[in-house]
Design a protein around this nucleic acid. Structure first.
Lengths: 202, 202
DNA sequence: GACAACATACCAACCGGTCGGTTTCTTCCG
DNA sequence: CGGAAGAAACCGACCGGTTGGTATGTTGTC
């Protein structure tokens, strides 16, 4: 009846449910019971796979969010020679996603949410989240470096500075949209973001 | 023996303690008992002044944080004709503050912390926090408008767009510093921020 | 029969909030 | 001026519910 490889299935279902609840609410704000209920399992199953709530959180960061960063930022920019155009394409993709599911407008970025909530409280969390930001920034930095070499980015721009600023601006924008919850304010900030990117043109 | 005006004293002590704990931890993460203990009062006193935990949070936003925004952003920019220079001066002031009390490096901005934590969970919170952001952005917008008129800001810049982008970038930067907790990364982001301001020069 | 994969019952600690009561201050009458 | 009356300020024991976590039991598969 049930599959033999149910084991991994249960684990990933717990992880995905936890990510969803952490995203919708927060880490501290969601209880283990909520995860158990929404995942359709029992507490015994959860504690069989994870030592405790924190370990579950770490796994969500290390597995779910990390792969998400890789898919949306690292891979698309890996071979970029025109990062400004490619970053704008990623922004376009976000716009499409929001047009389809407007609810995510108020949920923010899972990485940023967790980082803002936990990095001052738990150093193990902070280090893991910082690791993801480094991966993200490094992908941008490499792309800017390639862009400078290819002539699509102004040569006096510092790739590392630009990468860090883009990440900060992007996370700030997503955060502001979360508070404003208005499409107008989103497009206002979208314009500012693209304006900044254009400043990096030669 | 005790002063006649002890009443207001207790209320403000509760508010300041709550702000401190909400800043250090989070809203949901700090218990009423913690506030009571750190303020050196009792639960009865707290519930005498505030209907509940949420009402306490609202009061912290409406009174403590609002006045802080006014002092650091609205008043200094009220009569500005060179907003770019004046904003940089405010940033310098932040740098000095961080040099004195480096601990605040990892605590972030109280407004942004609360906004990110609560705006998706409680609409009353969101509206109040949004109100503060509007005050902040309006102050910047007016200053940019005055700067354009005075010739200290490029005339093709949209004051409202610039204001919204500055706020987003600033909150994003503070958020990133919270995760990184390194002075180097702070100066890297500081450079990006000032670079963006210079883009707004004529 | 050993072991992973769960399920269930249960726990102490803590949560936000209530409530009856006491103290302290203000007011106003004589 | 004294002193009763009442309101505001404050206390702390207590409540039902929830929290993260555990201990023990059951089940299916090599």
């Amino acid at each position: 009846m049930t599959e033999t490889r149910q084991a991994e299935d249960t684990r990933t279902r717990i992880l995905e449910t936890a990510l969803d609840l952490f995203h919708r609410g927060s880490f501290k704000g969601t209880s283990i019971n909520q995860v158990v209920e929404q995942a359709g399992i029992t507490k015994g199953a959860l504690f069989h796979y994870f030592k405790g709530k924190n370990e579950l959180g770490y796994a969500v960061v290390d597995e779910c969010i990390r792969s998400h960063i890789n898919e949306t930022w690292v891979e698309p920019l890996a071979t970029s020679v025109d990062p400004i155009a490619d970053i704008k394409a990623i922004l376009d993709h976000f716009d499409e996603m929001i047009a389809e599911r407007p609810e995510i407008l108020q949920l923010g970025c899972p990485l940023n949410n967790l980082a803002q909530e936990m990095s001052a409280q738990d150093d193990a969390f902070r280090e893991r989240l910082l690791g993801l930001y480094r991966i993200w920034e490094t992908a941008l930095e490499k792309a800017f470096r390639a862009g400078i070499e290819a002539g699509s980015v102004r040569s006096d721009a510092d790739p590392a500075d630009a990468a860090a600023t883009i990440v900060a601006l992007l996370e700030g924008c997503i955060g502001m949209i979360k508070v404003n919850q208005s499409r107008e304010h989103m497009s206002r900030i979208d314009r500012g973001l693209r304006l900044f990117l254009d400043f990096l043109r030669p």
